[in-house]
């Protein structure tokens, strides 16, 4: 597995990329289609929240729908 240091480096690179893409909103005027999507950092926040929501939704559905993987063999 990646060593401790390289893991840290990757996180630093990743977070700086996140900051760069969001700060792009200072320089580029994004046009909006439906109003709200033109706000500063909208795609970042929307993407982040949607993924959290999808993971939680899957987890909840998983509680009901998950079975051992030999379920159909019995």
């Amino acid at each position: 597995m990646l060593s401790k240091i390289s893991k840290r480096t990757i996180w630093i690179i990743f977070i700086s990329l996140l900051i760069i893409t969001v700060s792009g909103d200072f320089f580029i005027h994004r046009h909006s289609n439906f109003g709200i999507d033109g706000y500063f950092g909208f795609p970042a926040l929307f993407g982040f929240l949607c993924c959290i929501f999808l993971i939680i939704l899957s987890k909840i559905l998983g509680l009901f729908l998950k079975r051992q993987d030999n379920y159909y063999d019995e």
Binding site: F14, L17, L18, T21, V22, G24, D25, I28, H29, R30, H31, G41, P43, A44, L45, F46, G47, F48, C50, C51, I52, I55
Partner: peptide, 19 residues
Amino acid sequence: FDHVFFQLQLLLFSGLAFF
């Protein structure tokens, strides 16, 4: 630029959510 940055923000922050 508009579209590319929009997509990059969307995807990279989805990546953040994953990790």
